[in-house]
Computed example of a mutant assay.
Amino acid sequence: MRPKLLALLIFLSLCCTIAIADTPHIDITRTREKAKQALLYSKKRGYNLRYYILIDMSLPSGVKRFIVWDFKKDKAITSGLVSHGCGVSPWSGEWSKDKPVFSNADGSHCTALGKYAIGARDYSAWGINVKYYLTGLDATNSNAYARQIVFHSWEKVSETEVYPNGTPEGWGCPAISNQTMKTVDALLKKQKKKVLMWVYN
């Protein structure tokens, strides 16, 4: 092999290794702490004590920041990409992939932080045609239901990580990939008690 070609291959290999090492990921220690808090909250509210969903908005939208956590197994059983709201920017772009703006205001087109109760399942015009109504449980997301913020899938959301690119932004709904929703939907349909979703940064 020619020396120049070999040097180029080594350089590219090192670049890829650095890029992978620099990719942000869910902080598992922080996640476990959130899980403990979520379990206590769910016990007080009479919610589901097997699963909860967390969305860590401190991470860029191009990495897997959506997790279904199994309380009994004390680990994540499903993860994926999830969109956030575009705010004042045009819909479906990647304008705030690293620094989303949060708001509870109607018409803001922003995601609202806080705990949500995942409610009834219904038809959606998006993704696999399934959505779940969300009720905001905190002052920071109390308008979620009135704003029609729902949990659904979206064909624009990738099945795999796209970082340093971002996930297309909607009008504030937590939207996941179609395949991830198929997995999560199958799980949610079996639950008799409401599952908690926690969106935080």
Rank of each mutant, 00 (worst) to 15 (best):
A7Y: 04
L8W: 07
L8S: 08
F11K: 15
A19V: 12
A19M: 13
A19W: 11
A21R: 00
I28E: 09
T29N: 12
R32P: 01
A35R: 04
K43H: 05
Y47T: 02
N48E: 03
I53S: 03
I53M: 03
S58G: 08
S58A: 08
L59I: 09
P60K: 14
V63P: 01
W69K: 08
W69L: 04
D70S: 12
K73P: 03
D74C: 07
A76N: 07
I77H: 11
G80C: 02
L81Q: 06
G85Y: 04
V88A: 14
V88K: 15
V88I: 14
S89L: 11
S89I: 07
P90T: 14
S92V: 13
S92P: 02
W95Q: 11
K97C: 05
K99R: 14
A105I: 15
S108V: 15
C110M: 12
K115M: 04
K115D: 01
V130E: 06
Y145Q: 09
A146C: 02
V150G: 06
S153Y: 03
S153I: 01
V162A: 07
V162F: 09
N165I: 07
N165P: 07
N165F: 14
G166T: 13
T167Q: 09
E169D: 02
C173K: 06
T180W: 05
K189W: 00
K193V: 13
L196P: 12
W198A: 12
